[in-house]
Design a protein around this nucleic acid. Sequence first.
DNA 1: CCAAGGGTTAAACAAATGATTAAATCATTT
DNA 2: AAATGATTTAATCATTTGTTTAACCCTTGG
Lengths: 202, 202
Amino acid sequence: MRFKTKGMEPLTTEQKIIKAASKLFTQKGYAATKTREIAEEADINLALLNYYFGSKERLYKEVVKDKLWMLLEVMIPILSDEKVSLEEKVMTIAENYTQLLLEHEELPIFILNEWTVNEDLFVDITRDARLFAKPVIEKQLKENGMKVSVPDFIANLLSLIMFSFVAKPLIVSSGLVEEGEFANFVNRRKGKIWEWMTKINQ
Amino acid sequence: MRFKTKGMEPLTTEQKIIKAASKLFTQKGYAATKTREIAEEADINLALLNYYFGSKERLYKEVVKDKLWMLLEVMIPILSDEKVSLEEKVMTIAENYTQLLLEHEELPIFILNEWTVNEDLFVDITRDARLFAKPVIEKQLKENGMKVSVPDFIANLLSLIMFSFVAKPLIVSSGLVEEGEFANFVNRRKGKIWEWMTKINQ
DNA sequence: CCAAGGGTTAAACAAATGATTAAATCATTT
DNA sequence: AAATGATTTAATCATTTGTTTAACCCTTGG
């Protein structure tokens, strides 16, 4: 679905539209983004948007699918891989999420908000994305002498990594962390996640 | 600002509008909510909305101020009170937030999303809400032999309490926790927060 | 009693918005 | 170069949307 062009080839019209729509939808949400804005941002004619994607809604679904996948692919394959130890899992996910979210700060709040506001849209997208990792994690938790449940383990892991990004406006405007220090803040936290996870779970 | 009427007196027109707007804005966001919907939900004539509030935006700001305050008043006064021990603080905040968010699940994601999407709006609202609690917490962390920084302490506390609500759609649709079990899930977590916080911070 | 004024209403307005159309242009094949 | 299909464009359409207007109630104070 994704074509990463190594060189300088100009984007196709379709790619330009997706890129512009991606930026605007994640910045301002579905309803606040106007098709004319997308066209302008993509530097194409309004009619092209409907020519390629049929409607604003279909374009939106493409973007959501894309962004949701960015968020899930960091987690799903690693969690369910039996050959990866629990420590490696936590370290890798912490590392990958921190890096991803520093580059796309608006990603988690966009997805979580849209998922709340527009639940039906996600029904078909996530139909086959159930968490098949449960038994694997369960086994590894026992091996590590951790007495916590799988849901608590996952919730704690994601909380400690992702919440800072979701609550960034609150954290920054409260003066808790300076805007310019935010990257350092989350990078420092990233290095402590495994320690915290082991302590929490004994 | 808030009038809690004990009895059966019918809501004033102004109250009916705020109530309807509150519901719709938090459910669907600013742009997706139409003034005609608010009027219909409030069972009043459309023109009354502008008669009482001047514009959709002014009405929206009222709602945001209200909801933001609901979210902050649970935390701010308790955190900065020197007479409340650290354990009491954590326990009380965990208790109060869990209860508040079970009753208003849409609250945190609404505020955090609007804060991201519509940052300028929050500038004046939060101008005087800086976190004056820092020195108090710092002292209490030392007294409890905790080596963590204040920002990490607050981030961990809020993460462990609030993230489940923010990420509820993800947690539920992944099959991690059943919809019907969600309240039990967060209530069980609530009871462990203080234990977790002490372990994390040694 | 009635005029004044706040509260309420239906109707209308202008701008915006998502979508469509039909014609023009471009690139590729015959 | 003619033909064909894909791409691009400007113009237009039909609704929607936030706001305003002007008339109409209904209570109340002089």
